[in-house]
Design a protein around this nucleic acid. Sequence first.
DNA 1: CTAGGGTTAG
Length: 462
Amino acid sequence: MVRNRMLERLSTKLLNVCIASFCKVNKLEKAESVIIDAIRLGLLPDVVTYNTLINAYCRFVGIDAGYSILHRMGEAGINPDVVSYNSLIAAASRNSQISRSLDLFDEMIQRGIAPDVWSYNTLMHCFFKLGKPDEANRVFRDIILGDHTPCAATFNTMINGLCKNGYTENAFMLFRKLQRHGFVPELMTYNILVNGLCKIGRLGTAKRMIKEIGESGYVPNAITYTTVLKCCFRKRKFEEGLELLSEMKSEGYTYDGYAYCTAIGALIKIGKIKEATEYMVQLMKTGIKLDIASYNTLINMYCKDGKLEEAYKLLDEIEKDGLECDKYTHTIMIDGLCKAGNIEGAIRHLKYMNLMGFDSNLVAFNSLVDGLCKVGQIDTAMKVYKSMEVRDSFTYSSLVHNLCRIGKYRKASKLLLSCLRSGMNILKSAQRAVLSGLHYSGFRGEAKKLKSKIRMARILNH
DNA sequence: CTAGGGTTAG
C-alpha cells in the first residue's frame, strides 16, 4: 500500500514536470490534453499542476484565464494556496493592473491563505508602482520586523522602488546600511543602483558601483550594458554610445532588441532618422523577435519621418505577430497624426484607443493640445486643456508658447501663473516668451509683476 | 516576486 502511494506521488510529480515543460513554451492545449489523459489513467492533478497552469495562462492568455483556473481547481476539490495567488497578484502587477493585484491580495487573506514573503514583495512593488512609497515602506517594515524573513528580492524591490520614486539617494544609503549588516548584493541589486544613479546624473557613484560589480566577482550582463548605453545617450555622448553598442554586439549582449532600441530611440530624438533606420535594418537582419516596445520604437521612427503609411503597416504586423498594441503604441500614433497636422485622425485614434480599453493618457492629450495649437485651433486646445484631469509642464509649456506665438501674452501669463501655482516647472523659453511679449506689447508693469512671481515660485517649488 | 529599451512641449 505504502509502495503504491509512493508510486502515485512520483507519477503526479512526473505529470507536473511534463505539464511545466509544455506550459513553458506556451503549449497550453498540449498541457491540457496531457491532464485529460492523466485523469483517464486515474492520475489526479494536484495543487502544483494547477499552479503551473495559472502561471502559464496568466502569462500567455490573460489574468482572467489564470483566475478561471482557481475555480477549476476548486471544482476538482483542490484548494488554491499562496503560490496560486502569488502568480495572479504578480501577473496583475506586471500588466499594470495594480488595483487588481491589491484586490487579489485581500481575497487571498479573506480565504484564509497566509501571504508569504513573495506576496509581500509583490505588494511592496505594487505600492511603488502606484507612486505610494510610504505605503511600500510600511510593507517593507512589516516584512523586516514581522514574522517573515526578507530575501534578496525584498531588498532589490525596495531599493528599486525608492529609485523609481525619486529617492535614489535614500536607496543608496539603504544599500550601504544593508551591506554593513551583511547583505550580499546580487548583480540585480547593482544594476538597479547603476540605473538609478545614472538617471539622477551621479555618474561617479554609478561608475564606482560598476567597479564593485567586478570586485564582487560578478560579470556585468546585458542589462548592465544597456543601462550604461542609455546613460551615454542621455549625456549626449552619441559616438561613445554607438561604440558601446558595437562592443555589445561582438560580446553577444544583443540577443534581444533592448540595446538596438535604446540607440534607435536616441537617434530619433536628435533627428537622425537616417542613422536610426540603418540600425533598424541591422536589428531586422539579426532575426530577433520584435516585442511591442521594439515595434513602438519603429513606429515612432516612421512617424517622426512623416511616413504614416509605414507606421500603419507596422500596426498590422503587430497583430500578425500575435502581439497587442499598448498605450505607448496608441500614444505614438496619436502624436504622429498630430505632428502630421491630421487632428481628425488623431481624435479618431484617441477614441479608438478608449474603445480598446485604454484610458486617455496625459501624453496623448498633451500631443493633441500641441497639435491643435500648431494648426491654429488654440481655442479648442484650451477646451481640451480645461477638460484634462491631470496636466504637467508639457501641457503648460505647449500652450504658453503657442499663445505667445499669436500674441496673446496676457492669456499666456495667466496660464503660466496657474502652472507655477500647481507647483510645476515650465520651460525657461516659455517664460521668456511671455515676459518679453508682455514687455514689448506695452504691458511692462505686468511683465515686472510676473517676473517677481516667477522668482517666488522658484523658491517655493524647490 | 525584483534590474535594462518604447510616447509629448522648446
